[in-house]
Nucleic acid binder design. Sequence first.
DNA 1: TTAAAATATATGAAAATAAATATATATGAA
DNA 2: TTCATATATATTTATTTTCATATATTTTAA
Lengths: 115, 115
Amino acid sequence: MNPITFYKCLADETRLRCILLIHQEKELCVCELMQALNESQPKISRHLAQLRNCELLTDRRQGQWVFYSINQALFQWIHTVLSETLQNNPDFLADNIIALEEMGNRPQRAQSCCA
Amino acid sequence: MNPITFYKCLADETRLRCILLIHQEKELCVCELMQALNESQPKISRHLAQLRNCELLTDRRQGQWVFYSINQALFQWIHTVLSETLQNNPDFLADNIIALEEMGNRPQRAQSCCA
DNA sequence: TTAAAATATATGAAAATAAATATATATGAA
DNA sequence: TTCATATATATTTATTTTCATATATTTTAA
């Protein structure tokens, strides 16, 4: 991924929060991100679609849910930048993580082997 | 600097090239950036003003020239991200560096002590 | 010396372009 | 049918660019 595309992905509050939350949590579905960010379904979904189109995120469907994660095929420096950002801005996601943890009925992850 | 402000700074081609060139060259003036990027004076100047307002760059005037450099007071992770980006995208600035090196009459830097 | 010209940079304001959002609706799985 | 997610389209909002002009410094020459 070229650096401009990458930084455009990070340059929006909704997207940056989604990306960093997913990076930290490994995998989140749309409804979890809606709850964590307190944003509408189409808004979250649109931004995720954009990140999927750029190949920053990959998705997998499990039943009714679609789980998003960071594309592991990306160059290492991309992961480094995300980790640096997360580690050095511990407050940035604080409220989102609280909201996520307060969420009831979070979908169960199944292993790919038994989905 | 908060991460959204930072990534908005990087999310434009003109700005990203300026920032990474300055990071690599330590200090560049407006006319050098115009030459390296082959862009108009107001365009370069406007983007630099924006980066100065965000405190990503600092400037010093030396005679008729204004030299820009990365604000050394920024958190370390910001510098890390810039270095990672530069090191892992060696082609990105290639043409800009050629254009810069082809530039005649580059302004002489004076030390602060003898300016 | 000072006044005009030249050079480098900055900025106001309009125009052009791009991006984000909201509403309604569609799809797909349980 | 219901729940989760996606998307089309219209609208709003934000960003970028351009042109003209302003400012600051240096140089030239009267």
